[in-house]
Design a protein around this nucleic acid. Structure first.
Lengths: 164, 164
DNA sequence: TATTGTTATACTCTATAACTATA
DNA sequence: TATAGTTATAGAGTATAACAATA
């Protein structure tokens, strides 16, 4: 099924290639492969967001957590981990860092002494807002790239995520 | 910009949620965010491939390398790294493992004693074929999900990757 | 000087298993 | 016994910097 060998490309992703239409390098075998293009597009998008956040000295990895908290008001770490789709244990160190920097506050639950509610502090709200502004900016950029196709892209991606 | 707080969801990705149309959990704020859905779709697709490869006791991470080598015939590690869009140093340990298992062979270049050509052995070709069969299978599954929309999705993803 | 492959090192993100303190 | 949060540990996957050999 792999295509015939090709003259060795001397190119890198991001470099214009004379034989291709794409502006980034794609090994011939992967040209029509959905998973490949999904990965490249996802990496490009995430990196662009990360660069913008980095310029503002903000951790891109905080964005999802802070935003979910901002939306929910408060939540336990276990609830948060379910909202992120990641294991509880992966949140501990991040929550610790967020607390140490005063972005979140923890409050023991009276009904269940094992657990506690996490909520944003004023600083946390501010940082969330700044990250969100970057995300909005990034999304606007994607909107420009996507034009009329955004709704269709989202529908297709949802279909992949729920049925694959 | 974030929407109003919602009742805390008790759900996890993959679980049906009564209030949503999606079959997996999506925090309200991220519902129309391209980057979020890109990530979820990419993870789902990659994981599905990984599960299939795992069942055959094959490392999904080998697929790209072996397939590029199969296509090109032979290549130096530096060339390979450029084709993958990763730093040279990230390939060393994988190439070592592939050589140790007899999937690739290395041959010193006469013109440049610093470098060598990597090519698949018969075993390497076989493993590549098996991984490729899984990839084809996976792609067929995606084709079923995508139907007529595949070409459009690929075009949109290429646009994101090259312009973001 | 520049490049190739390698090493050392580190950082991010993720997971599992076991621990503790509660329930 | 079961659950919430934590810890220890590990494994991908990636990157940068520096080194030896060679160009």
């Amino acid at each position: 099924m792999p295509e015939a060998p090709r003259p060795p490309a001397t190119n890198v992703r991001g470099t214009k290639m004379s034989q291709e239409n794409d502006e980034y390098f794609v090994p011939a075998v992967f040209r029509e492969v959905v998973g490949f293009h999904l990965r490249i597009a996802q990496e490009a998008s995430f990196e662009a967001f990360g660069v913008m956040a980095g310029k503002a000295n903000l951790k891109p990895g905080w964005y999802a957590l802070l935003t979910i908290l901002n939306e929910a008001g408060s939540m336990t770490p276990s609830e948060l981990s379910r909202h992120c789709g990641r294991d509880r244990s992966t949140l501990t160190s991040t929550l610790k860092a967020l607390a140490a920097r005063g972005l979140i506050q923890r409050e023991r639950k009276s009904e269940d002494q094992r657990s506690y509610e996490v909520r944003l502090t004023a600083i946390g709200c501010d940082i969330q807002r700044r990250l969100h502004a970057i995300a909005i900016d990034h999304e606007r950029h994607l909107d420009e790239i996507l034009g009329q196709d955004k709704a269709m892209l989202l529908a297709i991606l949802r279909r992949i995520a729920s049925r694959v």
